[in-house]
Design a protein around this nucleic acid. Structure first.
Length: 662
RNA sequence: GCCCCCCUAGCUCAGACGGUAGAGCGUUUCCAUGGUAAGGAAAAGGUCACCGGUUCGAUUCCGGUGGGGGGCUCCA
C-alpha cells in the first residue's frame, strides 16, 4: 500500500494514501474537525502529499462553532420530520448556541419544541454521518426546488461573506447529506460546512425557545420562525450554561425591582416610564450624589434645562430632520382657528427633549466666551424622552423616559488630547467606584459615506481618542466605520459579576453642533474660533445604570448604596427599648438603620432582613444589653458577637465611606 | 413597528364541557416572649387587565385596546 507524507499537528508523519483524518485522530475523541493547510475541513476530507493537518478540539472556538452548526442541522432535520411542510431558512452557530430559521405552516409552540427535541435525540443516537457533496448551481436548484429560501441563497452565492456564507460560502457549492445506518442519505441541506463526523458527536444540547425573525434580517422580507438552541462538549458544560441563565434570571433587575420594592412601571403612566419607590429612590440618590461630588471635583459646572422646547431648537440642532421618529410628537399651543376649522393663527410646536446638548449649546452661546474659560464643562442630570419602538422596551435598561448624566465639554483643538485623556481616566475610575472592574474600550471611526466634517478634523479627533484609549492599557476593539455622522467616539464596555458585557459610557467628539449653533470663543490673538465639543455620559442613563448595578450586585448592594444599611433585631420584645437607643446612635452617625419591632420571632426577622439583602443585622439580647454591646450578623451569615456600639458604628461607617462591598 | 406567547388577591401561581373563583407568601387582629433563614390562630383582600361581540349566561369563546415577555429590527 502506498504512503504519503504529511504533518499532523506539526509532527511529520506517514500515512496510507487513502487515510482520512477520522482515522488519524481516532484515539483523540475531542478532535471533531481539522484544519488542512490552515483551512477548516471535515474529518472525512481526503489528504494529499505534503498536507499539514491540525486537529481541532470540540472545546476550541472553532470546534464549538462546528458542533453548534451541526446541531442546527440535526434540528432542521428533526423539524422537517415532525412538520413535513416546513421550509428551511438558514441555521448558523451563534454565541453559546445556534439557531435555525424556518417557514412552517404555523408558528411553533413550546410543545412543538419538545417534539423536535426528542426527534433530535433520536437522530443523535442514530449516529448519522455528515457527508460533504460538491454540486453545481443547476443541480442544486433542481434538488432544492422545494426550498425557496435555499434557492435564493444559491442565487446570492456570488455575494458570499454576508449571513448566507454559512450556507454557501466559498468557491464550491456543497450539500451535506446525513447518512443513515445503511449509508443512504436520510436528509440533506445546502451548506458550506464543515461538520462533525457524525451526529453521535453531539454530547449535549437543548432547544431554548422559538421566536420570529425576518428572512435575512430585513423588515421588508417575510417573517420566519426561529428556534434557538444550545450545544456543548459535555453535559456538565450544558448544565453550567443553564445554571448561568437561571442565575441571570434570578438577578434580573425587573424581578428584583419588585422583590426589593425599588421601582415599578405603572400601566397608567405608560410603557417604558418608571417610578422609583422610596428604597429605589435612596439607591438612586446615593448614586447621583456621589456622581455629583466627583464631577464637582473634576471641574464640571452644573446647569439645568427644561424638558420642553419649541421646535426651532431641534430644527437648529438637526434632530428634527434626522431623529424625529424617535421623538414624542409635538404639542401645538396657542393655535387659533376660524369657525370653518382653518387656521387663523399658527400655533407653536413644543417637543419633549430627546437630548440635552442643544440646551447646553444655548448656555455656551448666551454670552461671549474667552479661551480663558475653556475647557468649559457643563453637566446636567437631564431627563429626556424618546419614543422607543414598543418592541424594544426592556425594564430600566431601555426606557422611554430616562435621565442622562450628561455633560458637554467645550474646548480648543489643542486642549482636546489632554481633555479626552483625563476624561477617560475619570470615567473609568468612577465606574470602578460603583463596583465595576472589568472593562474594554471600543473606538468607532468614520464612515466616509455617512459623515460630515473635514478629513483632518476626523483624523485628529480619532487619533486623540485612540491615544487616550491606549493610555488606559485596556483591550481596545476597533469599530470601523461605526461612528455617528458627526464625529468619532469611544465607548466603555463593562463586564458584570456573571460575565455579561454592558455598554456603559460614551465619549463622543462632535464637529457638527458647534457649527450649527455657530459657537465661538475669542482666542489669545483676538480672533474668533470654533470650539471642539465633546459629548459624554458615564452611566448612559441613570435608570439603565441602576438596572445594570442591580443585576451586577444581584440586589445585594454594597452598604453605601443599600437602601437599608442595617436592620436591628431584638432577640425578644424585652430588648426593643435597648436597641431603640442603639438605633438612635446609628442614625445620628448618618447610618440608614431600621428597627424591626414587629411581633415576628427573631428567626423570622433574620430571614426577612436576609431576603431584603440588608448588609448588616444588629442583634441584641440579654447578654448584649447587660454589657452595652451588640452582635453584628453579616449578609454572608458570618457573625461577630459582643461588639461595643461605638465600634459597630465605626466599622459600618468606614465600610460606607470606603464604598466597600460586604 | 413586526411575529409568537402571556395578563386570575399586594407578590408568586392553581383553576373551571361557558353557570362570577382557590393556595402559599404578604397585610390586619389576637395568642405566644422566642439567641441566628418561616411559632400558632382568625380575618380582610378579586368587575379573573380594559372595551366590544357571540350566548339565557363570558373571567373562560371571538375581536379590539392597554400592559408584559421572548425574538427581529433599531439604539443618533
Amino acid at each position: 500500500m502506498s504512503q504519503i507524507s504529511i504533518t499532523v499537528d506539526g509532527a511529520k508523519s506517514s500515512v496510507e494514501i487513502d487515510a482520512r483524518p477520522t482515522q488519524i485522530f481516532a484515539e483523540r475523541k475531542e478532535i471533531i474537525v481539522c484544519k488542512v493547510n490552515g483551512v477548516l475541513k471535515d474529518l472525512w476530507t481526503e489528504l494529499s502529499e505534503g498536507d499539514a493537518v491540525e486537529g481541532i478540539s470540540i472545546s476550541s472556538p472553532e470546534g464549538l462553532s462546528v458542533l453548534r452548526h451541526s446541531t442546527a442541522h440535526v434540528m432542521a432535520q428533526a423539524v422537517q420530520q415532525v412538520f413535513a411542510q416546513t421550509r428551511l431558512g438558514i441555521g448558523p452557530p451563534i454565541t453559546d448556541g445556534f439557531y435555525y430559521d424556518f417557514d412552517p405552516e404555523r408558528p411553533f409552540n413550546p410543545e412543538d419544541l419538545e417534539k423536535v427535541e426528542s426527534a433530535m435525540r433520536k437522530i443523535v443516537k442514530d449516529g448519522q454521518r455528515f457527508r460533504r457533496r460538491v454540486t453545481t448551481e443547476a443541480d442544486a436548484l433542481k434538488e432544492l426546488a422545494h426550498e425557496p429560501y435555499k434557492c435564493e441563497l444559491i442565487g446570492l452565492k456570488a455575494g458570499a461573506g454576508d449571513e448566507a456564507s454559512v450556507e454557501v460560502g466559498g468557491s464550491e457549492l456543497t450539500i451535506y447529506d446525513n447518512l443513515g445506518r445503511d449509508g443512504q442519505p436520510v436528509w440533506s441541506d445546502l451548506c458550506r460546512g464543515p461538520h462533525l463526523p457524525s451526529t453521535k458527536h453531539i454530547p449535549a444540547f437543548k432547544l431554548m425557545r422559538s421566536a420570529a425573525a425576518y428572512w435575512r434580517g430585513s423588515e421588508k422580507n417575510p417573517m420566519l420562525q426561529r428556534i434557538y438552541g444550545t450545544a456543548w462538549p459535555s453535559q456538565d458544560e450544558l448544565t453550567a450554561y443553564l445554571d448561568l441563565l437561571a442565575e441571570a434570571e434570578k438577578r434580573d433587575h425587573r424581578r428584583l425591582g419588585t422583590e426589593l420594592d425599588l421601582f415599578s412601571f405603572p400601566e397608567e403612566i405608560g410603557s417604558g416610564l418608571a417610578v422609583f419607590h422610596p428604597k429605589g429612590g435612596i439607591i438612586r440618590r446615593a448614586m447621583e450624589d456621589y456622581s455629583r461630588k466627583r464631577h464637582e471635583d473634576e471641574g464640571y459646572e452644573f446647569v439645568y434645562s427644561p424638558h420642553l422646547t419649541k421646535a426651532a431648537l431641534f430644527e437648529k440642532s438637526g434632530h428634527l430632520q434626522w431623529y424625529s421618529e424617535g421623538m414624542y410628537p409635538p404639542m401645538i399651543m396657542d393655535e387659533e382657528l376660524h369657525s370653518d376649522g382653518t387656521i387663523k393663527r399658527a400655533g407653536q410646536q413644543y417637543y419633549m427633549k430627546p437630548m440635552n446638548c442643544p440646551f447646553h449649546n444655548l448656555i455656551f452661546a448666551s454670552r461671549g466666551r474667552s479661551y480663558r474659560e475653556l475647557p468649559l464643562r457643563l453637566f446636567e442630570f437631564g431627563t429626556v424622552y424618546r419614543y422607543e419602538k414598543s418592541g424594544v422596551i426592556h425594564g430600566l435598561t431601555r426606557a422611554r423616559g430616562f435621565t442622562q448624566d450628561d455633560a458637554h465639554i467645550y474646548c480648543t483643538k489643542e486642549q482636546m488630547v489632554d481633555e479626552l485623556d483625563s476624561l477617560l481616566t475619570f470615567v473609568l475610575n468612577l465606574l470602578r467606584d460603583y463596583g465595576l472592574e472589568d472593562f474594554y474600550l471600543e473606538l468607532s471611526t468614520r464612515n466616509p459615506e455617512k459623515s460630515v466634517g473635514e478629513d483632518a478634523d476626523w483624523a485628529e479627533a480619532t487619533e486623540a481618542l485612540r491615544k487616550a484609549a491606549v493610555a488606559q492599557k485596556l483591550e481596545l476593539v476597533l469599530d470601523e466605520g461605526g461612528a455617528a455622522f458627526y464625529g468619532p467616539k469611544i465607548s466603555v464596555q463593562a463586564k458584570d459579576a456573571i460575565g455579561r458585557t454592558w455598554q456603559m459610557s460614551t465619549i463622543q467628539v462632535d464637529f457638527q453642533l458647534p457649527q450649527r449653533f455657530e459657537l465661538e470663543y475669542s482666542a489669545t490673538d483676538g480672533t474668533r474660533q470654533r470650539p471642539v465639543m465633546i459629548h459624554r455620559a458615564l452611566f448612559g442613563s441613570i435608570e439603565r445604570f441602576f438596572g445594570v448595578l442591580t443585576e451586577h450586585y444581584s440586589g445585594a448592594f454594597p452598604p453605601w448604596l443599600a437602601p437599608v444599611q442595617v436592620t436591628a433585631i431584638p432577640v425578644a420584645e424585652a430588648f426593643v427599648d435597648y436597641l431603640a437607643g442603639v438605633v438612635k446612635a446609628f442614625k445620628s452617625a448618618g447610618i440608614r438603620i431600621d428597627l424591626d419591632a414587629s411581633d415576628d420571632r427573631m428567626q423570622k426577622k433574620i430571614r426577612n432582613a436576609q431576603m431584603q439583602k440588608v448588609p448588616y443585622m444588629l442583634i441584641a439580647g440579654e447578654e448584649d444589653q447587660l454589657a452595652g454591646k451588640v452582635s453584628i450578623r453579616y449578609r454572608n451569615g458570618e457573625q461577630k458577637n459582643g461588639i461595643a456600639v461605638v465600634d459597630a458604628i465605626a466599622e459600618i461607617q468606614s465600610a460606607i465611606r470606603d464604598r466597600k462591598q460586604v
